[in-house]
Design a binder for these strands. Structure first.
Lengths: 343, 343
DNA sequence: TTTAGCACTCGAATGCAGTGAGTGCTAACA
DNA sequence: TGTTAGCACTCACTGCATTCGAGTGCTAAA
């Protein structure tokens, strides 16, 4: 078990290192107001903390830096909740002052505020559509052979795609099809669309539409709404200011990883309540070895929608970032719920 | 006027430097198969070329590198057209093999192919909407107080935004409004929407809709479709592999510049026929001093739509990049025209 | 148990010769 | 007269020795 003094010293070292990015020596610690012991005493405790795995030495004549375990302990046990300053609150509210027009715009703006406030990289996983239900479907003819198919979900998301319309289908048939689809599919979860169309709705169509088979064929590809949710980034260049990313190869590794949609998606998808902090190798990704990821979920009307997060060096201002992520995820939930709460 | 030998030497130096990123010395030039003169002769010509401003010396005991003027001359006078290899053509066609569903997806995919093929940064300015005309308008009620307004243009672009619906407006009125709007606004250029609604359409609405004023107020903010077109990027991390961007500060400057939407927009917006090559300071941006930008426009049915471009170091493979940009802009034009040609 | 003192470690910074690729100039050559 | 060989000169880069200093671990005294 750690003594009170050891805790104090660990706390001081992590704080100092987060601020300065330089290995922390016993002397500089001893100068702090909240520390009353001599450097020698501190050195003894530091040696113990190192033996226990909370601290590391870059080399024998340097100060100590926190190990991954050290950060973990710091986050789990030593961190005091952070109260945002008035300015910070104002920054966050700015998202909601703008006239809100599109979910995407809100999400993107959130990402930007998040990265500006923290100087790290922000990631926002866009609203999940898997569980959302269909609100409306439209087919707008564009030219002889093509049309635009538009899906609107109950969460206000709009999906659109071009479809090829066989010549044999007449305008009136198209209209009738849209009416039938709206009648039968309103409220159906997107992931069930495909099945529903091929069974129940298919039968109805058969009775009302002349060129039934072509219509079904035309619709088929559009109904696989398995499009993965978008991940929005902001502040990618922020890491270039972090001393741990002086090395261009590390930067490249990290930025390349962020472009791997599948992986990033997987990392952000897992829903969880509250704040999740993943430190260094806990992320199970080589490119993230020197990084920590702090995430929180947001939802609409209690239904999990997506994730917001901050990616920064393990030497990250955990206190502030956790505060900001927490508030923003809650505010986002409130805003989106107000906007799209099924009435 | 430059002698033939000087041209040959200039050509060789630019080619060599583009390949190696190292200052080119007289000896290495003399070893090339197409060069039959001694290093001393070459040195004389190099001195002349330097005096004329086509070459520069990093320092007195290094080889020569092309100056901005040198690149300019190379691009304008020495460049042979590049014929794509079968593989390259295949890469480009891959854009069109995928099932096309959204303009945005095509654009984004184009950007990716472009950056993959060139190992530089690709930029694509999304379709301009200023001149496009309205094809269809829809208002989909979402909850008690909100609805989604959807605009579809003749180029297949779909724009959507959330609007607040005053309680006083009834569903039947909303429906009637949509019908009137579609009747009166079909074919109207987006930039005229606002005026048209307030004059002509306003009068019609007044006669048919009970809560006429509220409806107009609700629509007003949505009709200012002055949303700037999106710029898509791909391969931002590619510059990290370029030796001229070893310096992290330069990388940061450049990447930050790319996030300044307004500036980038301005740079890409100017329409021009054929390929445009802007070298170094011709870009009038400090962050682009070491960069060249190669752009071409794409259009739909002869109407200018947007711009694709490649941003790389001034030491760029101009020949290949120009070839790729040329082909892709033409193919994109063909594809989009086929898709959305007003029929 | 804490602290002062001291020898020790090791990375970072500094200074200095040696190396080599490249140049400019001059004089000889075709 | 244009081309080339020869040579002194420049200058970044490398390797090596040296110094400097922040920080440690250990021991002995308070």
């Amino acid at each position: 078990m750690l003594t009170d003094r050891q805790l104090l010293i660990l706390h001081a070292i992590v704080d100092d290192y987060i601020r300065s990015a330089e290995p922390v020596g016993s002397r500089s610690i001893s100068k702090r107001d909240d520390i009353t012991f001599s450097p020698a005493t501190i050195r003894n405790d530091m040696a113990d903390l190192e033996e226990l795995g909370f601290l590391e030495k870059p080399h024998s004549s340097a100060g100590r830096i926190p190990s991954q375990k050290g950060y973990r302990y710091y986050v789990d046990n030593l961190l005091m909740p952070h109260h945002l300053t008035a300015d910070e609150e104002l920054d966050i509210r700015s998202i909601f002052n703008e006239r809100i027009q599109e979910v995407e715009a809100v999400i993107q703006h959130s990402a930007r505020v998040l990265s500006n406030m923290t100087s790290y990289i922000s990631l926002v996983l866009g609203p999940e559509m898997f569980e959302t239900t269909l609100r409306n479907i439209q087919i707008i003819p564009l030219s002889k052979g093509s049309a635009i198919l538009i899906l609107v979900t109950d969460t206000g998301h709009v999906e659109n795609q071009t479809i090829a319309v066989p010549e044999s289908i007449e305008a009136s048939d198209l209209e009738r099809t849209v009416n039938i689809l709206n009648e039968r599919l309103m409220g159906v979860p997107l992931y069930k669309l495909r099945d529903k169309v091929h069974t129940e709705v298919g039968n109805v169509l058969r009775n009302h539409i002349k060129d039934y088979e072509h219509v079904l064929k035309m619709l088929a590809p559009s109904l696989d709404v398995e499009k993965p949710e978008k991940v929005f980034y902001s502040g990618k260049t922020n890491i270039l200011s972090q001393p741990e990313f002086r090395d261009i190869d590390k930067v490249r590794m990290l930025l390349n990883m962020l472009e791997e949609d599948k992986t990033m998606h997987q990392i952000l998808r897992s829903p969880h309540s509250g704040i999740q902090v993943k430190i260094g190798q806990e992320n199970k990704l080589e490119a993230f070895d020197n990084c920590s990821l702090i995430t929180a979920s947001y939802s609409i009307g209690g239904k999990h929608m997506g994730t917001i997060g901050i990616l920064g060096p393990t030497r990250m201002e955990y206190r502030r970032v956790i505060g900001v992520v927490d508030i923003l995820s809650k505010d986002l939930t409130k805003l989106l719920t107000n906007l799209y709460q099924r009435g």
